[in-house]
Amino acid sequence: MDVSEEYRDAWEGYWRETTDAPGEAIWDSDPSLTAEPHTELLLPYADSALPIVDLGCGNGTQTRYLAGRFPKAVGVDISHAAIEHARRADATGVAEFRQLSLVDGPAVRELHRRLGDCHVYMRAVIHQSRPQDRAAVAHAIAEFVGTRGRAFVVELVSASRDVLRRAAEGPDGPPPKLRRVFAHGLKPADASDEEVPALLAEAGLDIFTSGETALAQTEYLADGTRIELPARWFVVGRR
C-alpha cells in the first residue's frame, strides 16, 4: 500500500514552493520550542544509546537537534523536495535524510532492519494524513520501536481548529504561511481527539505517559500573538 498520487503531489508542491529560509514553513519552529522539550519528556523512558528516527522530518530542523542528543538521527519524509531542503540545511552531515512513505510497509521494515530498534520522534503527522492511511502510520511507529525503542508522538487536538479558524478570519484573511498550507490542500487538525490513542493501541503500543501541550508555529495572529496549536503528546512503546 502507498499514499495516493494526489496526497504526495500536495506535499511535493508545498515543499517545492518553500525556500531554504528557516521558519518559512509554518511548523518550522526553533527546536527550543519543540524537539528540545519533547526530548526531555522522552528520555526518562528511553535508552539514550539507541538511534532515533524523525518521522515527517520536513526540512530537518528538529532532526539536526536530535542528532546532538542521540548517537544517530535519521529524518524521513514523504516529499523528495523536503529531503532536498533537509540535506542542504545539514551542511556538516550531522543527520541522515531519506525519502520514505510511512504507509510503504516494505520500505519501513527495510529501514528498521538497517537501524535495529530505535526511538521515534513524530510531530503532527497523523492529523495531516488521510484517514485511510493513519493506521499504517501508527504501525510504522510500532515497527521502528520494536521491543526496545520508545516513541514521542504529538498531535493536534480539536481545539486547534478554533485557533486556525480565528487566524483564517483575520482582517486580511489567513496569514501568508497558513494560506500556503490551505492552498496546497493540506488539512491540519483533521483527526479526532480519540483517534490518535486508539490508533497507537491498535498498533500494539502501550502509552507510558501523556500530557497536553501547544505546538508553537512560526506565524502570528493579526494582533501579533504567536499561533500556538493545542496538542496532546504521548510516550509509547512495548512494555
Results as ranks from 00 to 15, higher is better:
179 R>S: 10
191 A>R: 04
187 K>W: 12
71 P>H: 12
40 E>K: 15
103 V>L: 13
108 V>Y: 00
4 S>A: 07
59 N>D: 14
136 A>T: 01
54 D>N: 05
121 Y>V: 03
105 G>L: 09
219 E>N: 05
170 G>N: 01
175 P>N: 03
139 H>V: 03
122 M>F: 07
157 V>R: 08
4 S>G: 15
78 I>T: 09
92 T>E: 15
91 A>W: 14
123 R>F: 04
144 F>Q: 01
199 L>D: 00
88 R>A: 13
218 T>C: 02
119 H>W: 01
150 R>E: 13
86 A>C: 12
191 A>G: 04
133 D>T: 08
63 T>H: 09
133 D>I: 01
56 G>T: 07
26 I>K: 06
118 C>M: 15
205 L>T: 06
235 V>D: 08
27 W>K: 04
18 T>G: 00
156 L>H: 01
233 W>C: 11
211 G>V: 11
177 K>Q: 11
52 I>T: 00
31 P>A: 08
75 G>M: 03
2 D>V: 14
31 P>H: 03
5 E>R: 12
208 F>E: 12
235 V>E: 03
171 P>I: 02
57 C>S: 07
33 L>E: 13
176 P>L: 15
67 A>D: 07
61 T>Q: 08
71 P>Y: 08
121 Y>R: 01
236 V>Q: 00
108 V>N: 02
55 L>Q: 03
32 S>R: 06
73 A>V: 12
6 E>H: 14
14 Y>L: 14
225 T>L: 04
176 P>A: 14
111 L>V: 04
100 L>A: 02
195 E>Y: 05
216 A>G: 06
51 P>M: 05
120 V>L: 05
20 D>K: 11
135 A>L: 12
65 Y>L: 08
121 Y>P: 11
166 R>F: 13
114 R>L: 06
128 Q>K: 11
207 I>G: 02
